[in-house]
Design a binder for these strands. Structure first.
Lengths: 404, 404
DNA sequence: GTAATAAGTCAAGTCAGTTGACTTAATAAG
DNA sequence: CTTATTAAGTCAACTGACTTGACTTATTAC
């Protein structure tokens, strides 16, 4: 009676899968277009008016959508638009970084309702998790104060932390968090919160945030270049986050800068905030670091500007690389750094080198500045469970339980 | 009554989509596992025995599967395995290269049944298309001689040619085929053959071939590094070919070799066969070129070996880059070059630089040599329509016609 | 006013997969 | 050598999500 079959196959599907898909399609259409009537939805999704009516009726009963005032737009019966109910679902997002943790609660449309942060002891996952659980607990309390039924409608806890994951020994790389890699974090969080847990690296979280409420909203192919303590690329391919075979896709910070360089220099060594801190002799665990860097950027501090000019050369190259390999509709630069610094970096990166992105008929810029709010990683972490619960996805159509 | 709606939405689905998906799932499971009983299929696909029975009955009636002898394997009624019928479907694959065109006819399981090639006049798409249509016509005649009902069962014509596509002016790049880029090739072929046409670049075709009958068979994440006249990467991501926003993903030959290099050198300049021909002062349109190069490789000609050593440095780097960005299960090196040369290249590329692919528990090698048969591009081109018709895919589930 | 147009509902119909009991055919155990 | 057990596969009724086509409602164009 072994359930483990050596047979490889995709799962089949049935009416349940169909129904689940169509419900997700409705939610997605409403998120992307704001408010749509049943007739609009029928046209957009290719379903019949009647099918849409049934689904909308159910979604309204379940509290995910509400009708607005009827609108007259020419001949014919006025249409009744529907929009998403923000309070239809909530998720908690958690950023775990080297020196601090941030948590947010968001609603169905991505509005941040509650936020909290705390310092983390370095290299002490055991103590760190206690702090994290406390932060999550306080977030849930605050959220419950805002919306009474929130507790029943939390779809999950998304966690974002620096990757890569699952690499046993990679030297004592300061860009990684070795002690945390070995700690059974997800299991502990699941047990401590009772929520569904998902894990992404920080760049992936940024990309998800950009897709939900930022520059990648509604795009099927976008790459989010995240310049934080390390550097990574969050990949939106075919409308979904791409994770790769072992969940570590997009670790562009580890890309070798040159085939011939004997020093093994990688992008992260030269263009990450870690390299900035090193060059300016700043302490990464310093409390006022963010404001300090913001002030330096606004004042166009010569040492900082020199670093920017240098880093921008490597980043231009990485954008060319991303365009060449992924052919995205746009590349979005995001950063854990203050907006002033991110702006300097983007300006210094222009003009970009020639690539296949230089094509006629472009409507989006090749490179744009994304969300620079330092809370965006936690937001992206929170957006993942929402997307998993409500966005149309191949895997959501498939059967998961045995049918007999 | 405009059909063009500004509303963005994913298509919904219905029973037809469900049914289409499940049929594809069955075909896919049989292709991956060789032969399976109805009970095996039910377990693997999570459908009920009854649902599988109905579907298999229909597939058998339509000539896509046949039963084999019952096998006894312990207690219980013996099971009756089913396998794909190779003659269930055929496709034609067409490689269009700078100096020649190759066409093959393959069956449902990827066996090449017929092949033909012809020289092409350089930079003359109008004359070239006439030759191509003649080649396709002869392939169809030969195929009809083998299988009487083949004509009714041809699912499409796959075309592979060097990319990138759709870039108006990119200089007079010798790696591209500018005259062909402007010619309405697909329309002409569709009109001339009456078949469904699909277009890929040559690296993508290689990847599809590897997935159907080569090293990537059954893998969900694999990258195929194709070293031909140019260099490209064919991307199998989440079990499907990834094309990017404008169909040009994977053009790694155009990746800049270094952020700081002022010369704008790209991979293709140093590691493509074009660069080999240049360095050895060979004429790319020379008739016996393939055998000539094979002989040089077997003899370990010093000039060729020197080029290999040099190119391998750049290719090692590109593999590290691919692993870092895509996190595939394996990287497959394929080439239009003779196998002896491809082997020299792979050997010279080892050991590979450190990357996130250095992880515990790997079962597949980081780099392996793929199909080196020069017909593999045409095979991959032919495999695309087969996959489109029979492999489970998200888009195959969605409704395409209006439902009222 | 009346026709045209469009949103939305009603009620019956379709069909792919599900359910649960049943049949068939083999082997292990006593 | 009989019997219990196990597993493949079938039968026939059922379910439920979407479809169909006619109908109602509400608005604007002429």
């Amino acid at each position: 009676m072994s359930d483990i079959s050596p047979i490889r196959a995709t799962s089949g599907t049935n009416q349940e899968g169909t129904s689940a898909h169509n419900r997700r399609v409705m939610m997605d259409a409403l998120r992307l277009n704001g408010a749509l009537s049943r007739a609009d939805l029928a046209r957009a999704t290719q379903l019949t008016k009647q099918a849409v009516s049934n689904i909308i009726e159910e979604l309204e009963r379940d509290g995910f959508v509400v009708s607005l005032d009827a609108v007259r737009k020419g001949r014919g019966q006025p249409s009744t638009p529907y929009r998403l109910v923000p309070e239809g679902a909530f998720a908690i997002g958690l950023q775990i970084d080297r020196h601090l943790t941030r948590a947010v609660a968001v609603d169905l449309v991505g509005t941040v309702l509650v936020r909290a942060e705390a310092k983390l002891p370095p290299d002490d996952p055991h103590g760190g998790v206690k702090i994290i659980l406390g932060v999550v607990e306080s977030i849930r309390r605050d959220l419950a104060a805002i919306s009474a039924l929130s507790e029943k409608r939390i779809v999950g806890l998304g966690v974002a932390m620096p990757g890569p994951f699952g690499l046993e020994e990679f030297g004592d790389n300061k860009w990684m968090m070795p002690a945390w890699q070995k700690y059974p974090l997800l299991e502990t969080l699941a047990a401590g919160t009772g929520l569904d847990i998902s894990l992404q690296n920080d760049s992936a979280a940024c990309a998800i945030a950009e897709r939900m409420v930022g520059a990648a909203h509604g795009l099927d192919h976008a790459v989010c270049l995240y310049v934080g303590y390390g550097i990574g690329a969050g990949l939106i391919l075919n409308g979904e986050l791409y994770r790769g075979g072992s969940g570590n896709a997009g670790e562009i910070g580890m890309a070798l800068l040159s085939p011939r360089g004997s020093d093994g220099a990688v992008l992260e060594h030269r263009a990450s905030l870690a390299s900035l801190y090193q060059q300016l002799e700043l302490d990464p665990s310093e409390t006022g670091l963010y404001d300090h860097v913001a002030a330096l950027a606004l004042a166009e501090d010569p040492a900082l500007v020199a670093w920017v000019r240098d880093a921008a050369m490597d980043l231009r190259w990485s954008v060319q690389l991303i365009e060449t390999l992924f052919d995205p509709e746009t590349v979005i630069l995001t950063s854990g750094a203050p907006e002033a610094l991110a702006r300097l970096i983007v300006e210094a990166m222009l003009p970009l080198p020639l690539s296949i992105a230089n094509r006629p008929g472009r409507t989006l810029p090749r490179l744009q500045l994304g969300i620079t709010d330092p809370w965006s990683i936690a937001l992206g972490a929170a957006a993942e469970p929402i997307g998993r619960a409500f966005d149309p996805r191949y895997s959501a159509i498939l059967k998961t339980r045995s049918g007999g």
